[in-house]
């Protein structure tokens, strides 16, 4: 593997997607736990979630915008194909994003009347569940090669072009996996946020359940890949990175569960994030060197070199502003309990 400009930028797209999954993914997961808030401490659970999400969700959200902007600037050919064929799930996902964000802010700033609050809470929770599933389905559609293999033509039928590529069992499986992973991340993060209260135990239990769900769904998806995504399966089983990646993913998963079990929550947080990261990069490695398997490679989809070079400079300059600011944000809001 040679590090061309296109490969480096594809890597940066993956890093941004990774950040989105780790940060915003947990915000979505928070919405899931808002939906499943149960028991005497129902309201306390919701308050904790909302308190944890409020200062950071908008900043987390921008990672997705970065992914999109980088895709259309650096890989315009792939972007336009994705935008045409995944029009429907992406539009639904957008609806989910709009409703979730607005519902959250309306709930925080809305009237004190309980009914209105509850209604927005419902919208927030349901949109938080639907959006990750749709995101996962889009990823699944790319991974199976359905997007890369479908040629758009005026003569093709609507269903075969705009529905079939993404509405598959495998796609649904990946969608559910995304949902389970996001819920797992959120529950683990919340155990740290809830330090020293009964809530911590609530979210510990939830995190363990979610870990179980991740495990079951992940194997289900792998089984489905036998028939539906043979190329991905082959690389996942036999590619040059397959074994080491499986080993580190496994270690991270076991560490996360063990740390939750023994109540080492900070360690669990690191391990859970690592586990999700390895799963994501496993997918990327499995379809390398294709951006849209089975035809479009990263190199072939890339924009002219001049654009890529400039974008790299812009990213470097942006990072100089962004990373310190982001560090500051998280230091102000996420490290206060140490004192």
């Amino acid at each position: 593997m040679t590090f061309t400009l296109a490969i480096i930028l594809a890597g940066i797209v993956m890093i941004a997607l990774n950040a989105y999954v780790l940060l915003a993914g947990a915000d979505f997961g928070g919405g899931v736990w808002d939906f499943f808030a149960r028991g005497d401490r129902r309201q306390a659970q919701r308050d904790l979630i909302s308190h944890a999400i409020a200062p950071i969700w908008e900043a987390n959200h921008v990672w997705l915008i970065l992914v999109i902007v980088l895709l259309f600037t650096c890989f315009p050919a792939a972007f336009s194909t994705i935008a045409i064929l995944l029009h429907i799930p992406l539009t639904l996902m957008l609806l989910g994003i709009v409703l979730r964000g607005s519902a959250f802010i309306f709930r925080s700033y809305g009237s004190e009347r309980d009914t209105a609050q509850q209604r927005w809470g419902r919208v927030f929770a349901i949109a938080s569940i639907a959006t990750p599933v749709l995101l996962g389905m889009c990823v699944g559609a790319v991974a199976t090669g359905a997007i890369g293999a479908t040629a758009v033509s005026r003569s093709g039928s609507f269903v075969s072009q705009f529905i079939d590529p993404w509405l598959t069992m495998f796609g649904v499986g990946v969608g559910l996996l995304a949902l389970a992973l996001f819920s797992f991340l959120a529950a683990v993060y919340l155990t740290v946020e809830a330090e020293g209260t009964e809530l911590q135990e609530d979210f510990r239990t939830r995190a363990l359940w979610a870990a179980g769900a991740v495990f079951v769904i992940a194997f289900g998806v792998l089984a489905l890949s036998w028939t539906e995504a043979p190329m991905v399966r082959q690389m996942l089983m036999a590619g040059p990175w397959a074994l080491p990646l499986h080993i580190v993913t496994g270690i991270a998963a076991i560490t996360a569960i063990a740390a939750l079990w023994t109540r080492h929550f900070r360690l669990a947080r690191v391990a859970a994030a690592a586990q999700v990261t390895f799963i994501l990069w496993g997918w990327a490695a499995a379809q390398y060197p294709y951006l849209l398997p089975p035809t479009l490679t990263i190199e072939a989809a890339a924009a002219p070199n001049r654009t890529l070079v400039l974008i790299l400079w812009a990213l470097a300059a942006g990072a100089c502003v962004l990373l310190p600011s982001l560090y500051y944000l998280f230091r102000v809001f996420k490290m206060q309990r140490r004192s």
């Binding site: 900043a59 902007v69 259309f72 924009a303 974008i311 942006g318």
Partner: peptide, 17 residues
Amino acid sequence: GPLVGMPFSLEGFAFFT
């Protein structure tokens, strides 16, 4: 995309900030 992506990327950073 390769032509107007630049201002959009910069916009992304401004928005992030």
